[in-house]
């Protein structure tokens, strides 16, 4: 994603407690927050922003199930049907021997699948260049951004000054 041409107003805070208080205040003033950015995950922020719980684990379950089936069915087919060999007097379909590889492939499919899903839905990947609102957001600043075309500028500026934002800027990203 390169520049989207969205005009934003954003305020920077120095501390996550100020940020949480500000988001609460924005909610009570019915200001529509575009995004909140922070240098580390701020706990307690998700419910305030109305973010529903991530469903990555659901995807993970189905990726894992795929792995289980691929491993178990492949081993069943290859040893049990395609080319039958007696190994150490074991039956052609030695289910207990299949457990380790079935487990490993379950974990492998679930992990790889979830990681790929994560980067895809977040729009992240090698070489992706997302607009950087402020370089200090990955350092020590906590940012609340509003879409400038959908908000009342005066209300937003008042909101930032009343909640203790240390800087307020406008930018096209």
């Amino acid at each position: 994603m390169s520049n989207t041409g969205t005009n934003i107003i954003y305020g920077l805070y120095d501390d996550e407690t100020d940020l949480l208080a500000a988001v609460k205040e924005a909610n009570s003033q019915h200001l529509e927050i575009m995004d909140v950015l922070s240098p580390f995950p701020v706990h307690g922020l998700d419910p305030l922003l109305g973010l529903s719980e991530s469903r990555l684990h659901v995807a993970g379950f189905f990726f894992g199930l795929t792995g289980t089936l691929v491993a178990f069915l492949f081993m069943t087919w290859s040893l049990g049907f395609d080319w039958q060999v007696i190994y150490g007097g074991k039956p052609y379909w030695p289910v207990p021997s299949f457990i380790p590889i079935t487990f490993e492939l379950t974990v492998l499919f679930a992990s790889v699948g979830m990681v790929v899903t994560f980067y895809t839905i977040c729009g992240l990947g090698p070489g992706v260049e997302n607009p950087i609102i402020d370089k200090r957001i990955t350092d020590n600043k906590f940012c609340i951004a509003f879409d400038a075309s959908h908000t009342n500028h005066e209300a937003v500026n008042n909101f930032f000054s009343s909640t203790g934002a240390t800087e307020v800027n406008q930018k096209t990203i």
Binding site: L37, P39, V42, L49, L124, G125, G127, N130, I137
Partner: peptide
């Protein structure tokens, strides 16, 4: 990978 620090991410 284009990481921004967005809350959802």
């Amino acid at each position: 990978f284009g990481w921004t620090g967005s809350a959802k991410h």
